[in-house]
Amino acid sequence: MRLEINNVTKKFKHKTAVDRFSMVIEVNDCVGLIGPNGAGKSTLIQIIADILSADEGYILLDGQKISTKKDQIGYLPQYPNFYSWMTAFETLLFMGKLSGISKSHLHKDIPLILEKVGLEKEAQAKVGTFSGGMKQRLGIAQALLHKPTLIIMDEPVSALDPIGRREVLNLLKEIKKETTILISTHILGDAEEICERFVVIKDGQKIEDATKTQLLNRSQESAIYLTIRKEDYEWLNQVENLPYVKGIENFGDGFKISVQQMEDDAYRLLQHGMDRKIGFKKFEIGVRESLEEIFLALVVKV
């Protein structure tokens, strides 16, 4: 489903949570909504899920209002809450019926989805006894149960242990071919795995909207990262005076060397070191910045 967010603004008493936010998500796209705590991610997600209403602007799904398309949306709130007196199975039965799925379908589908989110053993356990992570899994199950064409998830994996995180990410990867997905997170690694495109939000405003490759290319820095034995640190003085070296910086447990022409110079530098029998531990060319660092820079900079 195509999701169009147009100039959405939401003000609370003392602050503007979402400020003239626009974006379009094409059919079967996967977008990660990234931002620090309090950036307005959850507010925006809740507006899309039609829980909050926008003060200005509008949101369209396939050109229509969201309220007419609710059976097509799978929504996972940040802290999913269910009736503590229902079992996991009953919860899914209840939510499924509200989405208009027939009872016989549900009896067939619920065990499958429970197995996928790793709750098959807890099917008949009361939700009141569930841990936070188990509720999160149940929340994911209810969001996927009615096979929606748009999935909106607010921090889907933040509350899960590494195994749960892996299971859920695999689950999302499985359905992403035929589903439009919007997930918000402050943990980049998660979004990075399933989404190709990222939208960064800060103070309610969109400050970046790009694909992973674009981002990496943009901030690529031609530099050589190397680690050598302590005894060979002398050599660095010679390196500094080489004509093609622009500078040396400390970087982690090694050094970052900037050169003029990446490929030729890296080769020359390596040759130079080999000739002098330098003990290289690591020699790396190109990008060292992870997406994490790029986002950090983006968010802190503005």
Binding site: Q46, D50, I51, D71, P77, N81, F82, L98, G100
Partner: peptide, 13 residues
């Protein structure tokens, strides 16, 4: 208070 109302209304209810 526990968010079920908002949650239920995200369904076609």
């Amino acid at each position: 208070v526990n968010g079920m109302l908002a949650f239920i209304l995200t369904r076609p209810v």
